[in-house]
């Protein structure tokens, strides 16, 4: 008696969203089955991988990173190398330096960096802010204007600044809006409703449902993604059908396991390996739960995760 297969198909799909323009455009989302269930049906576009670079350069980065980016001294030069990283689908510029409690880089400076980066690459660009709501709003408005027509995704609009980010990024300059909520399906949905009420079209929104490194409350990430996908596909909930993009690098590399020196914890072994594995394990878990794109930074992580995605297609 053969095994009776019962594929789980849905009469709904995750929105497909295109980033960038022309031949190098990249589309994420589009699945009408649960994440990575290619044996059930159409997974739409296989998950995509973004390579993160920071406007702060390679400050404090490990050898694998400094070797890869050897010779690159500006964000634009780094970006040019990043897009050549094997496995890269898009480049993500993280403007950490804009943080008013940190380097407090000016909006004008950031716009120049973003323009230079956009000019240096042909793959699509994602802009990540500094996590300061007011500063991000200012930053995104000016960068969205400067990069008009490039179809850039901005991470992120949060409930606190969704009006300014949504209006500037999504309406005034017709770019893509990342909607960031903190691991709660209802907050995620509420933000999508608010953004669409503002006039941003659902197909121009991607969700960052919040992320956590493996071991750091990842259960909330997993359950939120599980529920979002179940609602999007099973309930045909249009306000949760946006593709999910998860910035993994920043979370993974900032936990103790990935950061402490080998000298302090000799039995743990080389710090770089720990960081890479934290990034890889977190990314693989995110993809298993439903991320349509992940943002990573280490060349080994990018290569591994892209190979895994290829194997699961």
């Amino acid at each position: 008696m053969p095994f009776k297969r019962t594929p789980q198909k849905f009469n709904a799909a995750i929105n497909a969203m295109t980033l960038g323009t022309g031949d190098n455009a990249v589309t994420i989302g589009g699945a009408s089955v649960l994440p990575l269930y290619s044996f059930d049906g159409d997974i739409g576009n296989a998950p995509k991988i973004g390579v993160e670079i920071s406007d702060l350069g390679l400050e404090g980065e490990c050898v694998g990173m400094t070797e890869f980016y050897a010779g690159a001294s500006t964000p634009a030069e780094m970006a040019a190398k990043a897009e050549k990283m094997p496995g890269a689908d898009f480049v993500c510029l993280r403007l950490e330096g804009a943080d008013p409690n940190g380097h407090n880089r000016s909006v004008e400076e950031c716009v120049e960096i973003a323009k230079a980066v956009a000019g240096a690459i042909s793959l699509p660009l994602v802009i990540e802010g500094c996590k300061n709501n007011e500063k991000d709003a200012e930053l995104f408005e000016k960068i969205a204007a400067a990069l008009e027509g490039k179809n850039v995704l901005f991470l992120s609009a949060k409930e606190e600044n969704h009006k300014s980010v949504g209006a500037a990024v999504g309406l005034a300059y017709a770019q893509k809006v990342g909607a960031e909520s903190s691991v709660d399906i209802n907050l995620a949905k509420q933000l999508n409703v608010l953004l669409t009420q503002l006039g941003v079209k659902a197909e121009n929104i991607a969700m960052n449902l919040g992320s956590a490194a493996a071991g750091y409350g990842f259960e909330y990430v997993a359950s939120t993604m599980d529920r979002v996908k179940a609602a999007a596909l099973g309930q045909n909930d249009a306000m949760l059908q946006m593709p999910v993009i998860t910035p993994v690098a920043s979370e993974a590399w900032s936990v103790k396991e990935a950061m402490v020196d080998e000298a302090d914890f000799p039995e743990w072994g080389p710090q770089e390996d720990r960081g890479v594995r934290m990034e890889i394990a977190t990314a693989a878990a995110c993809l298993a739960c439903g991320s349509d794109a992940v943002i990573l930074k280490h060349p080994r992580s990018v290569a591994t995760i892209s190979a895994m995605v290829a194997a699961l297609k």
């Binding site: 490194a213 493996a214 071991g215 750091y216 409350g217 990842f218 259960e219 997993a222 993974a252 396991e257 039995e267 743990w268 072994g269 080389p270 390996d273 720990r274 890479v276 594995r277 934290m278 890889i280 394990a281 977190t282 878990a285």
Partner: peptide
């Protein structure tokens, strides 16, 4: 199994 793999994997498992 090395610590490099164990730290994230066991943490993930504990969460899930």
């Amino acid at each position: 199994m090395s610590y490099a793999s164990a730290l994230p994997l066991y943490g993930l498992r504990q969460n899930i």
